[in-house]
Amino acid sequence: MKRSARDIILLISMLAIAAGWYALSRDTSANAVGAIVWIDGFRSARLSLEQADEFTFERGGDINVVRIENGTARIVSANCPGGDCTRQRAISRAGELIVCVPHKLMITLESVPAFDTVAR
């Protein structure tokens, strides 16, 4: 086989892997109900997707503002260099995520309730 043909096959199979990975990792079984805000690897907050609201996360001068509306979550403003996180799409399905690399902040969605029980 010619080498240039091999390059094309490689390109196609890589795209196939990407498509397969995407199809399998998508959680279509349940609607997301909560957004988890991870800071430094810890689940720092859990925001209900059912209620429109805006939350400001500040840690050592790092600020990210998270907006919840219409069952979606996104970062509407942040003081990270570049502000890449504010350009990521609003997420609405379990398994989707938004990440702010400089602030080590990440938002993921989950389809399970916030808690098993409540102490009061």
């Binding site: 890589m14 995407y22 990792s25």
Partner: peptide, 23 residues
């Protein structure tokens, strides 16, 4: 990033980044 964030959820980006890296 998964190590730095201590979170495996970032692998959710893998399909996109494999496709982008390939093209």
């Amino acid at each position: 990033a998964s190590l730095m964030f201590a979170n495996a959820g970032l692998w959710g980006y893998a399909p996109y980044l494999i496709a982008v890296g390939s093209v």
